[in-house]
């Protein structure tokens, strides 16, 4: 029970209920398990720190800015992987955001009930398909399609941009960006839809009363929900950054930084997935773990930001 601090109730005899011993035991038991989660998370962070120590000692902050990744020479730097992760995730966001917004609007404002439930269900399934299946599909369907159709088309239309030039092998930044987009669309659209739903209907009606078109009313709802939608987007970004298998299978796995999006690249998660089991030495392993630590830090920041944004909109709106 909260101890009263206020003016009146200070000097009075507080009646406290005595809980039965079994109830106290029960609360402590559940608390114990909850505490375990906290321990696990700290343990994870601790392990990553300890195990990456040799690499951190050897390369310092230079690790993040160096492009060398040469196990034979025991030279390690993460920049190429950071580049691959960042660019493929940005491409994914650029594709996923408009599509997800469209879906969210469609689901929350336009669709009749039956379509709403069906589409929601399909998107739920899309979210649940294992990433290995996406990757596999990427290798055998998407990559050939990119190589034979999409990339030649992009080069002939947008070829003046440096991103859309170069050798067309089908595996690379653009392909992994597209796969990632498909994978994060369910998250972004589902959360955006939920955020849009929290905007009171009265606001839309007010807009209609002022003579707004349907789109204008929706646009107003969007403006009101913008930080929640931003939160959803950032959450999707967090997913994209941490995604491993699908990216590993289509990004090409070549440690290089090239301006063209057709070029193969390498991501942080992919390099861990590919090299970890066969790491050639202590410093190699430790460097991979440091890559993991960077990845952890990035996703942590991204996710915290996302939660904060989503929480602040939905809270603000439900309080209203």
């Amino acid at each position: 029970m909260k101890k009263s601090t206020g003016n009146n109730s200070e000097n009075l005899k507080v009646i406290k209920s005595k809980n039965h011993i079994s109830d106290i035991f029960f609360e402590k038991t559940t608390l114990f398990f909850a505490f375990l989660i906290i321990c696990i998370v700290f343990w994870i962070i601790y392990e990553m720190f300890i195990d990456s120590a040799p690499s951190r000692d050897a390369f310092g902050w230079g690790f993040i800015f160096s492009q060398d990744w040469e196990p034979v020479k025991e030279q390690f730097g993460a920049l190429t992987f950071i580049y691959g992760t960042v660019v493929s995730s940005i491409i994914a966001l650029a594709i996923a955001l408009p599509v997800s917004l469209g879906i969210a609007i469609f689901l929350s404002e336009l669709a009749p009930q039956i379509i709403k439930t069906t589409l929601s269900f399909l998107i739920e399934i899309l979210a649940a398909i294992p990433s290995i299946v996406f990757g596999f599909w990427g290798i055998f369907v998407l990559a050939p399609f990119m190589r034979n159709t999409a990339q030649p088309f992009l080069e002939s239309t947008l070829g003046f941009l440096p991103f859309f030039t170069g050798t067309k092998i089908g595996f690379g930044l653009l392909t992994s960006g597209i796969i990632l987009a498909i994978m994060i669309i369910p998250i972004i659209s589902a959360i955006s839809r939920d955020v849009l739903k929290t905007i009171p209907q009265a606001q839309r009606e007010a807009a209609y009363a002022l003579g707004a078109t349907r789109w204008e009313a929706i646009k107003m709802a969007l403006l009101n929900a913008k930080s929640g939608i931003l939160g959803a987007t950032v959450l999707g970004l967090g997913r994209a950054v941490g995604e491993t298998m699908a990216v590993t299978m289509v990004i090409g796995n070549r440690a290089q930084i090239k301006i063209s999006w057709f070029e193969p690249a390498y991501s942080m998660a992919s390099v861990i997935a590919n090299e970890f089991a066969e790491a050639s030495g202590k410093i190699h392993l430790s460097s991979l773990i440091e890559v993991g630590l960077v990845l952890f830090a990035v996703t942590f920041v991204i996710n915290s930001l996302a939660r904060f944004l989503i929480y602040s909109t939905t809270k603000k709106l439900t309080v209203k």
Partner: peptide, 17 residues
């Protein structure tokens, strides 16, 4: 927060759990 005294069936309420 509950303050004061309550007597239930002849016993102070705090004597019960």
């Amino acid at each position: 927060v509950v303050t004061g005294e309550i007597n239930i069936l002849g016993k102070d309420i705090t004597e019960y759990n």
